[in-house]
């Protein structure tokens, strides 16, 4: 009976894991093929063309695009976490008249599809003379409706107001309370938001597509797409680029996975 129970537990789990992992493996395995040879062989078994594909992307603009993506995503992540956590702190700790209204506005911004606002954002960036730079790709993630909502919810459940009051009684200023009291309590929420923002920025295609008009400003998604000419798409090189592009994401998730999961499940069980 126990064996059957184990089988019934493990088989579906293993199948689900395979369904999730096979695309990853295929991405890596296909990146070791010459594009035209991928389906003339069994793509599950790696071939010997990886170095050629790496050479192809290195001879293009890969390293520069990689650095651009790292720069944009890292800065977007850090700034977004700071701004959103401040907004969440303010929305939780302070009582003010327009609070409900502001909260509704935050929710509303999450309902508006990005595509609707993009022309307005382009006009804004053009008027600020920033449209030929990487800055629009960073700014767009900083004021995030989701981030503010996420941090507000998280701080509400993770930061005891008694701590804030005690700190005030002890003479701590508001900035000190935010940095010294709130920050350590909301770390899982911050890490979760940081990872999500990094991921979204790293994978973002539409903003770079519309704002980047110079090869030197390419980010990874635009670079990968550019590995195609009029009549040929170099799938092998594209998949090599994508495989290398997933490395930072994997590292970040590996480093922050425990905190990330804690962040996601925070508040799920009330003690």
């Amino acid at each position: 009976m126990k064996v059957i129970k184990k089988i019934l537990t493990w088989v579906p789990l293993i199948l689900l894991a395979l369904v999730s992992l096979i695309p990853f493996w295929l991405m890596f395995s296909m990146s070791t093929y010459k594009s035209e040879m991928i389906f003339q062989n069994n793509p599950l078994i790696p071939s010997n063309f990886l170095m050629e594909n790496i050479k192809t992307i290195m001879e293009s603009n890969f390293v520069h695009s990689y650095l651009n993506s790292l720069f944009v995503s890292a800065l977007a992540m850090v700034l977004s976490v700071i701004v959103c956590s401040m907004a969440g702190f303010a929305m939780t700790v302070y009582q003010f008249k327009a609070k409900k209204f502001v909260n509704t506005l935050i929710m509303l911004t999450m309902m508006v599809p990005t595509q609707i606002g993009i022309i307005g954002y382009m006009i804004e960036m053009r008027n600020l003379h920033l449209n030929q730079t990487l800055i629009p790709l960073i700014l767009v993630w900083i004021a995030s409706g989701f981030g503010a909502y996420w941090m507000t919810s998280f701080i509400q459940s993770a930061l005891p107001m008694e701590l804030v009051e005690s700190a005030r009684v002890d003479g701590a200023g508001e900035i000190m309370i935010y940095l010294r009291i709130a920050f350590p309590c909301i770390r899982p929420g911050l890490v979760t938001l940081a990872l999500l923002q990094f991921l979204w920025s790293w994978n973002s295609y539409m903003y770079p597509l519309l704002f980047i008009n110079k090869q030197e400003n390419y980010t990874i998604p635009i670079f990968v797409k550019s590995l195609a000419s009029a009549y040929r798409t170099d799938y092998g090189a594209q998949l090599t680029g994508l495989t290398l592009a997933t490395i930072p994401i994997l590292i970040f998730f590996a480093l922050g996975s425990k905190t990330f999961i804690r962040g996601l499940t925070a508040g799920a069980v009330k003690g």
């Binding site: 506005l105 935050i106 911004t109 990005t114 606002g117 307005g120 004021a143 503010a148």
Partner: peptide
């Protein structure tokens, strides 16, 4: 924060 957030949507 909201003003900057809405800039993209409402501009």
């Amino acid at each position: 924060m909201l003003a900057s957030m809405l800039a993209g949507c409402a501009a």
